[in-house]
Amino acid sequence: MSAPDRPKAVVLLSGGLDSATCLAVARAEGYECHCLSFAYGQRHDVELEAARRVARALGAAEHKVIRLDLRAFGGSALTDDIEVPRPADEAEIGRGGIPVTYVPARNTIFLSFGLAWAEVLGAFDLFIGANALDYSGYPDCRPEFLEAFERVANLGTKAGAEGHRFRIHAPLLRLTKAEIIRKGAALGVDYGLTHSCYDPDPEGRACGGCDSCLLRKKGFREAGVPDPTPYRT
Score class of each variant (00 low, 15 high):
37 S>H: 11
37 S>E: 08
38 F>K: 09
38 F>Q: 10
39 A>I: 01
40 Y>S: 11
41 G>H: 08
42 Q>T: 03
43 R>M: 11
44 H>G: 07
47 E>M: 00
48 L>A: 12
49 E>M: 04
49 E>Y: 01
50 A>H: 11
51 A>C: 09
51 A>L: 05
52 R>P: 04
54 V>E: 05
56 R>Y: 06
57 A>W: 00
59 G>A: 13
61 A>M: 12
63 H>K: 10
66 I>A: 14
69 D>T: 05
69 D>S: 10
71 R>H: 03
72 A>L: 15
74 G>M: 08
78 L>S: 06
81 D>R: 11
81 D>A: 14
83 E>I: 06
84 V>F: 03
88 A>G: 13
89 D>A: 15
89 D>C: 14
89 D>I: 04
89 D>M: 04
91 A>D: 13
91 A>C: 02
92 E>I: 00
93 I>L: 11
95 R>H: 02
96 G>K: 08
102 Y>I: 00
104 P>R: 00
104 P>F: 01
105 A>N: 15
108 T>E: 10
108 T>I: 13
110 F>W: 00
111 L>D: 06
113 F>R: 04
113 F>I: 01
117 W>D: 13
121 L>K: 05
122 G>T: 14
123 A>T: 08
126 L>P: 08
129 G>D: 06
134 D>C: 14
134 D>K: 14
137 G>V: 02
137 G>H: 03
138 Y>T: 03
138 Y>H: 13
146 L>C: 11
151 R>N: 07
151 R>V: 14
152 V>N: 03
153 A>L: 05
